[in-house]
Simulated scan of single mutants.
Amino acid sequence: MKMIPLGRSGLTVSELCLGTMTWGSQNTEAEGHVQADLALDRGITFWDTAEMYPVNPVRAETVGVSEEIVGSWIKARGGRDRLVIATKITGTGQHVRPGQPITGTSLREAAEASLRRLNTDYIDLYQLHWPNRGSYHFRQNWSYAPTGIDRTAETAAMTDILTAAQSLIAEGKIRAIGLSNETVWGTARWLHLADTLGLPRMVSAQNEYSLLCRQFDTDHAELSLIEDLPLLAYSTLAAGLLSGKYAGDVTPSDSRRARVPDLGGRITPQVFPAVAACLAVAADHGLDPVQMAIAFCRTRPFTTIPIIGATRLADLATCIGAAGLNLSPEVLDDLNEVYRLHPRPF
């Protein structure tokens, strides 16, 4: 497993990141531990979770359970220093501090609660799950209207959060801070405040990215490259669509779609032709479609670390098999042609 620097954080991480969002809902604690064992055995030392996990669906009674399962694995196996652990503070809503924005105070409270659940003294990467003002992610782009945003108030709130992060870093409770589901303006503003005020710099951006969702490829890509801000790409298989298991508009009984029928807005009339085109490229070149989709993310001109996850151990092993896979120029040409024909299927 290739190891790469996480931007300017000083952290070194595996080229793939293990996602844990199904641990506690679609996966039991024991299954989560087995997945963790496999990932570590294959060299994946970078793990991602969040205080609101598990999902599918998010429920008040399961908030924090994924972190607890990571924590029970650490307690049982030891060796915390083998891992780089990322987690997140939840934004407004989603059963965690409902209606309350992220503040310096809530950042500290949430981080300390995550530390307890994770059975650790420090969090390597602490991320803001989404911005207080909202964003265009999670299919909100179709009705996105950035109105009523007070620049002065946003700047004050960001400064408050970065100041709290600075204290947590000084205390050794977190090592670095990052973003998730942010916009280009928001990301640039966080970086500007850090640089001008001497506050902690955001070191990464965790946004959705896949062959079917390439919003990051323009302005965000430029910012990522110039500012050395790696993309932690989630939903690299578009919630399983790129595996082909939903091809023909079917719903396997044990799948995520059985729990979330529209896959978070990804099921549209346009998506299945796009999926079929991607599957055809994999077949034409003798590639596993899952591994092709994950490996594609690592080909981008900006640093991309795909987050992988699965409910079945065999499927996780297939995902891990994407490590080190190099796609030929012919494969990339074919995938770019698919993108031109199916630019935004959901």
Rank of each mutant, 00 (worst) to 15 (best):
L199M: 01
G104R: 01
Y126P: 00
T103Y: 01
A194L: 05
S135V: 12
Y136F: 15
W190V: 09
R151T: 12
D195N: 05
G134Y: 04
L118T: 04
G198I: 03
A110F: 03
I177K: 02
T163D: 07
G104V: 05
M202T: 12
A164C: 10
I174V: 11
P146G: 12
N141Q: 14
S106Y: 12
A188L: 13
L128R: 01
R133Q: 14
T183W: 08
R116A: 14
R139V: 13
Y122E: 00
A113R: 04
T155D: 07
S143E: 11
N132Y: 07
R133A: 15
R201Y: 11
A188W: 12
W130S: 07
L125T: 07
I169P: 00
G104C: 13
L197T: 08
M158W: 10
A205M: 14
A194W: 08
S135Y: 09
T196H: 15
R117W: 00
T163Q: 13
I123D: 04
W185Q: 02
R116S: 13
Q166W: 02
I174M: 05
G198E: 05
A156G: 09
T163S: 14
G172D: 00
A165K: 03
D150R: 11
L193D: 02
N181A: 06
I177A: 00
A156C: 12
I149Q: 13
G172A: 08
Q140C: 07
A110N: 02
A194S: 15
H192S: 14
T103E: 03
E171Y: 03
S204G: 08
E182I: 06
S143T: 07
G172T: 02
L107G: 01
W185E: 09
T155R: 15
D195Y: 12
P146I: 11
R201F: 09
V184F: 08
D121E: 14
D121T: 12
P131Y: 10
N132F: 08
M158E: 10
H192G: 10
